[in-house]
């Protein structure tokens, strides 16, 4: 596609996890071969549970962790291959918003200095221009222009996240990687931040990589979604497609564990719930990584690793039995 902004190919991030009991080294397969691309002006959601490797993808794109294998292209720049000065030269194109608005702002820096920081570091504009940008960004995220003279501790959690967004916007990036940007916030504030992100996207033509554990939030923000389990994408599709006809049993289990304020009491108890917890990413099983928890798993699943297969409209599923299984969620059955 011509309007492709970010392209991630075969990304692997492995960490050394110290010595294994039987000699040799243990390796954490945090991200184990993922491909995706983000179109300009759209949001790409990555959903998964803790330890799935979704945050590691965010950090790999930002070049905050060493990439073991694979490539990342931002337009024509291969950002996975750049180092030092040449990496810094393209840093203004992609920025990040972190999960915790308390630890992601330096307590010793006033708001204006925090927002200016990327400009100062990358040498963009002059002193006056940077202050002007900082003020403009404060206004853009709904804070007062004068708020720049305050220290982070003088802001509430929601306001701090606005500051973080302002900082990410300062260098006029095309891509913002959002790693669980609302999961530390109260619901009322969460809605404000989600709406702000959508509004900024519409105004500035931003693209987002949006990492979250919350399907409902991802559905609200994203155009395309990938579901991640133990370092791999198990299903990816345009959002409308995924939420109307998900095919992977893991995606189903995330959907059936989701709570709703309208649900009847004891709804969860009536749904098929997933047992157990994800196995360790240090020694991923040979076959399908979800097989150990999957209610539909067979011998084949445990032995043979399923590849992502296409099901039309950009819908790809890594399951041997995709399309053959009956979804345990009534809404999905009706749609299919």
């Amino acid at each position: 596609m011509s309007d492709e902004l970010l392209r991630v190919n075969g990304l692997k991030v492995h960490f050394d996890a110290g010595r294994a009991p039987g000699g040799g080294r243990r390796t954490v397969h945090a991200v184990d071969g993922v491909d995706f691309s983000v179109r300009k002006g759209t949001s790409y959601g990555i959903v998964g549970e803790s330890g799935s490797g979704k945050s590691t993808i965010a950090q790999a794109i930002m070049r905050l962790v060493p990439i073991t294998e694979g490539s990342i292209f931002l337009k024509e720049h291969q950002i996975s291959g750049l180092e030092g000065q040449s990496l810094r030269a393209v840093r203004d194109r992609f920025q990040m918003v972190f999960q915790d608005p308390f630890s992601s702002l330096n307590p010793r820096k006033k708001a204006r200095a925090a927002i200016r920081e990327p400009l100062d570091l990358l040498g963009i504009g002059d002193e006056k221009g940077r202050d002007k940008v900082a003020e403009d960004m404060l206004a853009a995220v709904g804070l007062h222009r004068e708020a720049g003279r305050l220290f982070p501790h003088q802001f509430s959690g929601g306001q701090r996240q606005r500051l973080c967004i302002a900082r990410a916007l300062a260098s006029r990036p095309e891509l913002i990687v959002c790693d669980e940007p609302v999961s530390a916030l109260d619901v009322a504030i969460q809605a404000q931040i989600l709406n702000l992100l959508r509004q900024l996207q519409a105004e500035m033509g931003l693209s987002y990589v949006f990492i979250s554990h919350d399907l409902a939030v991802v559905q609200y923000v994203c155009d395309e979604v990938a579901v991640m389990y133990l370092g791999e994408f198990v299903e990816k599709a345009p959002a409308a497609k995924l939420f109307s006809s998900a095919m992977h049993p893991y995606t189903w289990s995330l959907m059936s564990a989701a709570l709703s304020p309208e649900a009847e009491r004891g709804t969860l108890a009536k749904r098929p719930l997933l047992g157990g917890e994800p196995p360790s990413p240090t020694a991923p099983p040979p076959g399908c990584r979800f097989a150990a928890r999957c209610p539909f798993a067979t011998e084949r699943c445990r032995a043979e690793k399923p590849a992502l297969r296409g099901f039309g409209e950009g819908h790809r599923v890594a399951c041997h039995y995709a399309g053959e299984l009956e979804p345990p969620i009534p809404e999905l059955r009706r749609a299919a």
Binding site: A139, G142, L143, H144, R145, E146, A147, R149, L150, H153, Q154, F155, S156, G157, G158, Q159, R162, Q192, N195, L196, Q199
Partner: peptide, 17 residues
Amino acid sequence: MSSEPMQATAAPVEAAP
């Protein structure tokens, strides 16, 4: 909670801190 009621809706902005 933190200090300033210096606000924040996605909509515009309020009085100076």
